[in-house]
Design a protein around this nucleic acid. Structure first.
Lengths: 150, 150
DNA sequence: CTACGATCTCAAGTTAACTTTAGATCAAGA
DNA sequence: TCTTGATCTAAAGTTAACTTGAGATCGTAG
């Protein structure tokens, strides 16, 4: 696979694990803009495959296609962004990621804590059920999912 | 708000930020099983609110409702699980979370790297576009999204 | 040149996750 | 009791993200 590879939609599908129909749909949604062969068939550059990979990952974390399109659209293409542009533009996305990582890590750690505390049940656990007085007879960690107060 | 609070669906909606219709839908999907007042109105315990919070978070990370139902159903209720049961049951979920955290953290860090490298464009960046020889004239970090090879 | 699988477009169908609507009942204050 | 807002059920509608289907064209091995 060389740097100047240009791929057909079927090859891109095989490589990314996406369905051919999904790739065409993403084009309709403006996520990618593949080139066209003289006959009309789509031709994909590496950049397109990168974008598609990005789409898959972002999607797996609950980002919508319009939101992903925004993220991808804010990047290069029209005018060349300055370093400052880049920083400003990506800051929002980075913050969203940081936020999600924080929430998820918290959830994961809480789960670890619950497994470790030996209480045997999420429902009965002081950790899961902070304010249940019966459960608070035991001790151990006391937190879950930040404090959105439920 | 005391530990024995029992809430109406509207109060739960206000507290969780979910729509009333969504809460009813979640009940239909088996995610929660609120009690009923003599007249038929739903009555929610703290445990229900906890479950709903869990649903929101898991959903934000792309888990489907059936999958979330599995996670919630595997927990207490029928028979009392042993510590070992608990560990085995939650192991799968924990691994999914770890996996997601790893992927997302990588993505975030890659983005950091790209912002920091001064190349000004994701498309042109050696980081984003690893195998593009033109871009590799510059130096800096070289990676993105693990190596799923696109 | 001829197959024949890969693609193309456009339109309609599908699925998950809800929301909306309609008409009836509940619940709590005046 | 009366009234008024909150809930109830059941069914139909909505939206996002695709998939499927129909019929035509592309493109490459023979």
């Amino acid at each position: 696979m060389r740097a100047d590879d240009i791929l057909s939609i079927g090859q891109v599908a095989a490589r990314t694990g996406l369905a051919v129909s999904a790739i065409r749909y993403y084009e309709d949604m403006g996520l990618i803009t593949p080139m066209r062969a003289p006959g009309g068939n789509r031709r994909f550059r590496r950049a397109d495959i990168r974008r598609l990979s990005f789409v898959r990952i972002a999607q797996g974390f609950g980002f919508t296609l319009p939101r992903i399109a925004e993220l991808l659209a804010d990047l290069p293409e029209a005018r060349t962004p300055t370093a400052k542009d880049w920083r400003v533009i990506s800051e929002g996305f980075k913050q969203e990621l940081d936020q999600k990582i924080a929430t998820l890590t918290k959830l994961r750690d809480d789960l670890d804590g619950c497994i470790g505390c030996g209480c045997l049940s999420l429902e009965r656990c002081a950790l899961y059920n902070r304010d249940d007085r019966a459960a608070q007879k035991g001790d151990g960690p006391r937190y879950l999912m930040g404090d959105t107060s439920d």
